[in-house]
Amino acid sequence: MSATPTTATACTCPECEANVPFARRPLQGEVVRCPDCSAELEVTALDPITLELAPEVQEDWGE
């Protein structure tokens, strides 16, 4: 599920539909958190900015 892009510096959370603001232009693949529902979101496109729920942590993820 992806979110509806709104403006260049904001986007709608695909989980709760709250406004997710960006202080600066995000990068492709950037991970952000929804200020309302705390869902972890990933920037999947830049033009326009599109957010999707970040993938679940996999077994081999880490430091």
Binding site: V57, E59, D60, W61, G62, E63
Partner: peptide, 8 residues
Amino acid sequence: PAVGSWGR
């Protein structure tokens, strides 16, 4: 777990 991180 031999593989994994973040205290999981």
